[in-house]
């Protein structure tokens, strides 16, 4: 009972502190408040698992997960390299690159644009993960098939955003480029691509999550004996849930870092856009 009381007490206290911080409007509130909230969740979790004696097979405590994580670093690193670096990153770069190039190519023909946008929007909403078993069959069990799944998954969201972004210049701006006698490549590089960047980055950010999902889910359909999806599937079978949670921790950290990296790149390249300007 002590654990439960402590956890709930901590929760109430943190809630009160957060209200105070929120009222004070301090500049560091945006950082401290979510951190405190996250810490509260962890302590509630730990307290409930210990206090209520929840079976570790169902829900391991955060401390147990941390121990497993620390004890299995080499395995986790191997899985990370196999799934994220070889599978997800390769597929992400290939898929997004192909989508942006296709978007630029399509942009020259209004006919193709009108045809491709609705179709692309439709395909982007489909459960493309379902392609995984087929692609695993075509490209074998190793990382190549995972990269292929990622390519298919990220292609359409990025394509749709690129095409939409390249249309996002108004006639005034285009007329100005004309009065400068700018050639097509010049207009593309100096006006339309920069104007499309906020859209493209929107697609790229969506694609980071999709890439990790694709690479991990594809491993459920067959993989060599390493990789995050493989480890999750086999550990669930052995009811070694602390190992599963350790993999989730890795996925969470890598996923956030991936997303954060793309968001940072966006900030550097589209500093001029209203959404990136610092709030007054």
């Amino acid at each position: 009972m002590i654990w439960v009381t402590f956890a709930i007490g901590f929760w109430l206290m943190a809630w009160w502190i957060n209200i105070q911080i929120g009222r004070s409007g301090a500049p560091w509130a945006g950082l401290v408040m979510p951190a405190l909230f996250g810490l509260t969740l962890l302590i509630l979790w730990e307290g409930m698992v210990r206090g209520l004696g929840i079976n570790p097979v169902l829900l391991p405590a955060p401390s147990a997960i941390a121990q497993t994580f620390a004890a299995n670093l080499p395995t986790l690193w191997g899985d990370l390299v196999q799934t994220v670096v070889k599978g997800a990153l390769t597929g992400y770069v290939l898929g997004c690159g192909a989508a942006i190039l296709t978007g630029i190519a399509v942009d020259r023909s209004p006919f193709l644009q009108r045809g491709l946008l609705p179709v692309g929007n439709f395909v982007a909403a489909l459960p493309i993960v379902g392609m995984a078993p087929i692609l695993v069959m075509w490209f074998g069990f190793d990382w190549q098939s995972k990269a292929a799944v990622v390519v298919v998954m990220v292609f359409f969201p990025v394509l749709v955003n690129t095409v939409a972004g390249l249309r996002d210049t108004d006639s005034m701006q285009r007329d100005l480029m004309r009065t400068y006698a700018a050639s097509y490549p010049q207009t593309l590089l100096k006006l339309r691509l920069p104007a499309a960047l906020p859209f493209i980055f929107n697609g790229l950010k969506i694609a980071t999550t999709l890439a990790l999902i694709g690479a991990i889910v594809a491993e459920f359909f067959g993989s060599p004996t390493r990789g995050m999806g493989f480890r999750i599937a086999t550990s669930v079978g052995q009811l070694a849930l602390d190992m599963v949670w350790a993999e989730i921790l890795v996925a969470a950290v890598v996923g956030s870092a991936f997303y954060g990296g793309v968001a940072m790149l966006e900030k550097m390249l589209t500093f001029w856009h209203p959404s990136q300007r610092r709030r007054a």
């Binding site: 945006g30 979510p34 999550t209 991990i216 989730i248 996925a251």
Partner: peptide, 18 residues
């Protein structure tokens, strides 16, 4: 201020994989 960042962070976790 305290929940919204976690809502966004929750989606960078490839939850579907677990």
């Amino acid at each position: 201020m305290s929940v919204m960042p976690w809502v966004i962070a929750s989606q960078t976790v490839p939850i579907i994989a677990i």
